[in-house]
Design a protein around this nucleic acid. Structure first.
Lengths: 160, 160
DNA sequence: TATTGTTATACTCTATAACTATA
DNA sequence: TATAGTTATAGAGTATAACAATA
């Protein structure tokens, strides 16, 4: 990126290209420590560790999912999913079910209680931090449009 | 067991508000697994663990910094910084120095070698992912402006 | 023979508590 | 007495390898 650069905006970013500055800001914004605090509160409430809460955030609320697919979502090893689902079962939040046709596969389903908790955990993750409320509708839409392009482009890059 | 490294896919946005969708996209974009791969490569090259690379990314390249302040930057406990700096010293990447006036304090300084590595690690973190290249200059500037507002607002929220 | 999940195990990450040396 | 850092230690997070059951 060349620096035909913008007006002297943020002093700290004087030498950054807009793209670099944007990237830095995105990382700062998504890093928000209050989210971690929220998550921690949920861990305490449910009496499970971080891994289990992450699983709750990625488990489909109404569907069943195989161990293997959950591992892919969590981007972790299969064996760790065993550990995690064990905890979830102990807490009565999920159950292992047989797959109807392939008996190697175990399908994980949330219990009533687990469904409830999973919904909350997922809503928590999906809720933008409070600062977003300061954006005008038009700004939010503009932001969205640019991020969509960025996301699409990232995905495309991934396949090259 | 293989770990399939999938990119967290942004959910379907049909029902989301623009702010919600933007938030989901930001999380998907910053989650990029290629960064983790890069970091992992550096870990291998230097022969240290992730914690040490993170320290390298946060150590001031030309200044000294106290153990305590480094702990604050890493957002971790003091005792863990001891562990980390021990490793950095073993690898000849950093040294502990006495503070000129307060003998309780130990100042960490990078060695020549460490400075080099730290610069690389920091440049790696600051470089936007490849998708950013697809944004027009105007889009990058617009994105930057909105994110700056968001960031400022987040900081303000933090003090309420 | 390949695939799904589990067990056994070990290494990394990280914090807490108790401690030492200053201040 | 309070603060900076260290030591000892333990628990959470996570992977690897070997394995059992099924396909």
């Amino acid at each position: 990126m060349t620096r035909t650069s913008t007006r002297a905006n943020a002093a700290t970013h004087a030498d950054d290209s807009p793209a670099q500055e944007a990237w830095g800001l995105m990382r700062a914004i998504t890093h928000d420590p209050r989210r971690m605090a929220q998550t921690h509160a949920l861990m305490e409430e449910v009496g499970v560790t971080l891994g289990a809460v992450k699983a709750l955030q990625l488990l489909p609320v109404n569907d069943a999912i195989s161990m293997r697919k959950l591992a892919a979502r969590l981007n972790c090893d299969n064996s760790y999913v065993t550990t995690l689902v064990d905890v979830l079962e102990e807490r009565g939040l999920a159950r292992r079910q047989a797959h109807p046709t392939d008996r190697r596969i175990k399908m994980i389903v949330l219990t009533e209680n687990g469904r409830h908790l999973a919904s909350r955990a997922q809503a928590m993750a999906a809720t933008p931090p409070p600062g977003f409320a300061a954006l005008s509708r038009q700004e939010a839409i503009t932001l969205c449009t640019i991020l969509r392009k960025l996301d699409t482009e990232e995905r495309a890059e991934l396949l090259r």
